[in-house]
Design a binder for these strands. Structure first.
Lengths: 217, 217
DNA sequence: GTTCAAATTATCGTATACAAAAATAAGATG
DNA sequence: CATCTTATTTTTGTATACGATAATTTGAAC
């Protein structure tokens, strides 16, 4: 983690958008942000540029920056793409994974199991990230891996809530097993299909998700 | 197009990376870039941040920015993802396209035909972009559309060369017809498959492409 | 001659200053 | 009283200045 002022501002604003403190359409005033984060306008501007780059804000020339919090529709759209990317990762991993990578994948998923056993959803969350990271690395396409990681990160704060939904963790784990099985068997089609579902089931549970978001707003 | 100094620097560097003037690993020195583009370091730094954001440069803290020109492997990876996204666009478009959008798609492709008839590859290129833009808009997922557009833009300078490869334009047009047919018939699977091929055939012709790139370097 | 340490230099990251453009307010005219 | 014009103010975009940290060079000791 960087100690740069710019990254702190970026992550700070990102967090506030995710939690709903900063609402959609709200103006991101450079001066007041600089005041709030106790830095000058320079790092604030850098942070805003990065926000625009990652799609969390829009910039109108000579008018300023505005929060672009993802709408319900936006999130459905992102999940639709996410499931496709995740599916592609699994498909490619089924063809390209090494035996060491399979071992690591299994070990990571055992971490998920122990996390569930201890009822620690934060721990499960971390192992779950690792699990998918294993697949990204095994897909043999670092560009795809990076894109998928990025999108996952963008849906991250919402997914974290998602995993806490009752009964989701064991189900998620079952899906993991199916994914591992398909990848190990080199069954690309099944790996793709199951991974797609794994993401989309979360997408279909949007009502649960929305209630959480509404609470935050 | 913006008149900002920062965007001019960004596009300038982007172009120089695409053409190979700026080689992989080369240092992007803020001072000399500012000198070269006749601006101060501030807009140069903004441009570098955007370059890093779009993956064309890497930044090592307190060490500076370095060109990250896509390698042969990188481009294969990007094509692999591109074909998937393009396929998904077509798949969704087959389910969601409106009759007006179909008409526009056909008209645009007629533009492609006349461009070929007149042997104008630049004109064909523009109509080809429009053709795919029609599909992006018809897919009903603006996030997916944006991501696909972005990746297409990144492969753009290479694709432009690609289309000039002998015999590629008529073949590309044939594929367009197949795509239109599948989308109009609402045949999502075929639309997906054909679109995937449409991109991948270009990817498979990498030897032709590479010779062009080598000439530039 | 080699190696390690201190001083120097260069460059990055941030702060501040300034200029240009747009939004807002004020005033004049009908 | 409404509206258009003009002045003020705010804010963006760029330039410059400064401090901190890493790279480089110089010099001394072995």
């Amino acid at each position: 983690m960087s100690h740069r002022a710019a990254t702190k501002v970026f992550q700070g604003i990102e967090e506030e958008i995710a939690t709903g403190q900063l609402k959609d359409g709200e103006k991101l005033d450079e001066a007041s942000l600089a005041e709030r984060f106790q830095v000058s306008r320079t790092p604030v501007r850098e942070a805003l540029l990065q926000l625009v780059g990652s799609g969390l804000a829009t910039q109108i020339p000579k008018r300023g920056c505005f929060v672009k919090a993802p709408s319900f529709r936006d999130m459905i759209e992102m999940f639709e793409v996410m499931s496709e990317l995740e599916g592609l990762c699994a498909r490619l991993a089924a063809r390209r994974i090494s035996s060491q990578q399979i071992d690591r994948l299994k070990r990571t998923n055992q971490g998920c199991e122990t996390a569930i056993a201890s009822g620690d959803s934060d721990l499960y969350y971390d192992f779950n990230v690792d699990f998918h990271e294993c697949i990204y690395e095994a897909c043999g396409n670092s560009f795809l891996a990076q894109e998928t990681r990025q999108l996952r990160r963008r849906l991250q704060s919402f997914r974290r809530l998602q995993l806490r939904v009752r009964g989701r963790m064991p189900q998620s784990l079952e899906e993991h097993h199916a994914i591992i099985e398909a990848i190990e068997a080199g069954d690309a089609d099944t790996a793709d299909e199951v991974s797609r579902q794994h993401v989309m089931i979360q997408g279909e549970r949007f009502n649960d998700l929305l209630s959480h978001i509404d609470q935050m707003r």
